[in-house]
Design a protein around this nucleic acid. Structure first.
Lengths: 342, 342
DNA sequence: ATGCCGGTTTGCAGCGCTGCAGAGTGTGAC
DNA sequence: GTCACACTCTGCAGCGCTGCAAACCGGCAT
């Protein structure tokens, strides 16, 4: 059977299709009497608006794109879990795209070069975009950026304060008496603004404590994943003067580093303490559990959606702003040791 | 600026909009001369079809829904990584929905009760659907089920052979000399057909080896996640006669169990060997690494998409079939111990 | 020259909905 | 009793595309 249309409902209710539309959308004023008739007809036919038709007529798609580098990175899937229902509540669907960290793909998307699917706006977590690429984008695309790049005034940026979070993490290690603290995950500014900010926080914490930074303990890594963490740790442990702690720029890096440290026969945290970043569930179940910076993911997800929908709804482009989200430090076994009996 | 339409291209090329449409879609025969003219105009205007309009006219949405219980379960996000590009290649977008394992929500979706978003077919990984719920669904909805439920002839089911995979896993433990092997993750048939199949494989492996099954070592758990694994393991270790191995019905369960075992001061695998199921990346980085059953996820993802698109394209409903996918056992440290020096 | 044929191209209508502006209706003021 | 006005409701056109079937065209047989 064909789905019932506005016309079918109108016929049954004895009104015009336009009036049914008004009732469905709550648009124009409608008398109580008419509304009742229409609503009854709607219910009787179990009418559902055809979203394709509605969106075509309205000239929008009703969809937003969420673009992340890797879908199987827990941080992103946890974030998506917050984004999808929020957008759905507000009448938008979410299309997910994964870039594999391919900068060319990211650039294409924000230029709307490949219109493989329709969307009204985008939440993007870039990995390889430099400022030039960001400037070259479609200026009419409502855009919210997560992580990495701070706003240049043409888009919104939602994220935690990487500098102070990183300072907190590093200070935590210093507070435990560690003095040779590695930083794993630094990246050149062009592709990793967030990484740069974290390194800055790391330096500030040292300065705060009156400690010098051993530059050779700052390890660059192309990505924030397990293998990078493991490699970096192996490299650090091969030194004559290995570190006694490491601030890892993601929990995955920390988990990789942990694996490498344990494989090398070290005890964590006794021989080397580790702290990560992101607070993914996995870090709460590893052995030992991973201390971490926990960003307020629920707020980030909700804010990103809300800001994006505001931009989409705005008749003229809104100025791009920085939206801060909170974070807190969660100390677990990888820095504190097995304190509790549990 | 308004995006160029078929009409704009037609005007520029000096042909009718219909002909442009034919060229774009490669439909009707078009002379080389005409094609050339049109293609030039297409390129000049950088024309992209409006998918909303196309789909409305064609009477389809061009989207498929992929419904999983939890997006942040690594197994599903790894699967999605295979599904999304495959669907995109074939001209379909993927809408992701997460049910939180809510059976009512799942039921609603397959009955198409809530048409919050348009889709032409669905790939569903159910968690709480019994056979009755499956039968009550919208019969016109092309459906492919992953895991859990085998086909009743009205939809396709894609999955590995749970029985033989589970037998392999259990046999591996038996082969290592373990004799008190727990099974963690059993579920009542109504909601967990896959769990039942795994338990069956577990029994068969015992029978093959001429061993009796200690029924009290089969532990039921509502879900397949870390906390379930940890709880189950604590419960098992509290017994006077704890097991010396456990076959866990997912890697997450195994990771949870591992955590609990280590917390209790046991050595893995010396005191208790563990094997999981799913081969998620996390299990390759845990300490120790987790032995597991590795399903051929790439094939599952590709096959699910292909079958679904076939069902969507079919003029009359296709008979539902079982599509097997391969699996293999990967033995790692949680059963073998630290064999390699690495 | 006429008719016929197969291959190309086109026009029409419509997918189901909404924006807009106009038509209809009832009420109160004069 | 008449007019103006505010409030409801409706009709039309169109979003951009495709299905369908008719129209067209050149070439060939008669």
């Amino acid at each position: 059977m064909r789905d019932p249309t506005l016309r079918d409902v109108a016929q049954l209710a004895g009104v015009s299709p336009r009036t049914v539309s008004n009732v469905v959308n709550g648009y124009a004023p409608v008398t109580e009497r008419t509304r009742r008739k229409v609503e009854q007809a709607l219910a009787q036919l179990d009418y559902r608006p055809n979203l394709l038709a509605r969106n075509l007529a309205r000239g929008r798609s009703g969809q937003i794109a969420v673009v992340v580098p890797y879908l199987d990175t827990p941080y992103f899937s946890e974030l998506l879990q917050g984004i999808i229902p929020r957008a759905r509540e507000r009448g938008y669907n979410v299309l997910i795209d994964q870039t594999d960290g391919d900068a060319a793909h990211e650039r294409e998307l924000i230029r709307r070069a490949a219109r493989a699917f329709p969307f009204d706006g985008m939440i993007l977590s870039p990995l390889g975009l430099d400022q030039a690429a960001l400037s070259d984008r479609d200026p009419d695309l409502p855009l919210v950026i997560l992580g990495e790049r701070s706003s240049d005034g043409t888009f919104d940026h939602v994220g935690i304060d990487d500098v102070s979070a990183s300072r907190d993490a590093t200070a935590h290690l210093i507070g435990l008496g560690r003095r040779r603290i590695a930083a794993i995950g630094d990246q050149p500014y062009a592709t990793g603004e967030a990484a740069q900010l974290r390194t800055r926080g790391y330096r500030i914490a040292h300065a705060d404590a009156g400690l010098d930074v051993d530059e050779s303990l700052i390890v660059r890594r192309p990505r924030f994943n397990r293998i990078d963490g493991a490699d970096a740790m192996r490299q650090l442990l091969a030194r004559p003067d290995p570190p006694d702690a490491a601030f890892c720029y993601s929990d995955l890096v920390a988990l990789g580093a942990l694996r490498a440290a344990l494989q090398a026969g070290l005890r964590v945290p006794e021989d080397i303490a580790l702290i990560g970043y992101d607070d993914i569930e996995e870090g709460r179940y590893s052995n030992p559990t991973i201390s971490t910076i926990s960003p307020d993911k629920a707020t980030i997800a909700a804010t990103a959606v809300d800001r994006l929908l505001q931009r989409i709804a705005a008749p003229t482009p809104l100025p791009g702003i920085e939206v801060p989200a909170g974070h807190r430090l969660i100390a677990r076994e990888s820095t504190l040791g097995r304190t509790s009996g549990g």
